[in-house]
């Protein structure tokens, strides 16, 4: 079962599958809802309804990710392409899956792609990027770095890291 944080993970996976080199996600949390917008520079071969179950160019048994996002967002989703790239947007109920940013974001950043995620929560913008994690030696894929990743997120939530 996908919680809303898993839908973000699914969206990032979708971008990576499309060959995206840069992925920027915005997660807005408030009023009982979570809005997600994911921009990437991937190469999509969009079908008539990419949210249809099994809609894929990747082979049999694939293509459930966007369909799950459609189901969980109760249809509040769209995928658009423009000159700057592809944008996936959806919103879902706040199920608390972003209450612990460490748990929500570790699976997203435990990988090599250039990903930036901005969380708008409690009147604060918390921005985490692969570049920042590398600078802080906090890419959460090994002992020591996992601890630093947790501490970095905590500091960002408290507004103790600037610039």
């Amino acid at each position: 079962m996908h919680d809303t944080a898993a839908l973000l993970l699914e969206s990032v996976e979708n971008s990576i599958e499309a060959g995206a080199r840069h992925i920027n996600a915005l997660v807005e949390i408030g009023s009982g809802k979570i809005g997600v917008r994911v921009e990437d520079d991937g190469e999509y071969n969009l079908l008539s309804d990419p949210f249809e179950d099994g809609s894929t160019t990747k082979g049999e048994g694939r293509g459930r990710g966007l369909h799950i996002i459609k189901e969980r967002s109760e249809g509040r989703c769209r995928l658009t392409r423009g000159w700057a790239g592809t944008v996936l947007e959806f919103s879902a109920s706040d199920d608390g899956s972003f209450d612990d940013l460490y748990e929500a974001l570790l699976p997203v950043f435990c990988r090599e792609e250039s990903i930036t995620i901005t969380i708008k929560k409690d009147g604060r913008d918390i921005s985490v990027s692969r570049k920042l994690l590398e600078e802080r030696d906090a890419v959460p894929d090994r002992a020591g770095c996992i601890k630093r990743f947790r501490e970095l997120l905590s500091d960002l939530e408290k507004g103790e890291i600037y610039g």
């Binding site: 079962m1 944080a5 898993a6 996976e13 459930r64 748990e103 959460p140």
Partner: peptide, 27 residues
């Protein structure tokens, strides 16, 4: 961590492994 893996709970699996690797200091 594909769709079916996430659906089956791979996010929790990955987080658990990461937590334990950190706790045990398996560098």
């Amino acid at each position: 961590m594909g769709t079916s893996g996430i659906d089956a709970g791979a996010k929790l699996t990955l987080n658990t492994i990461a937590d334990d690797v950190e706790k045990l200091g398996l560098d």
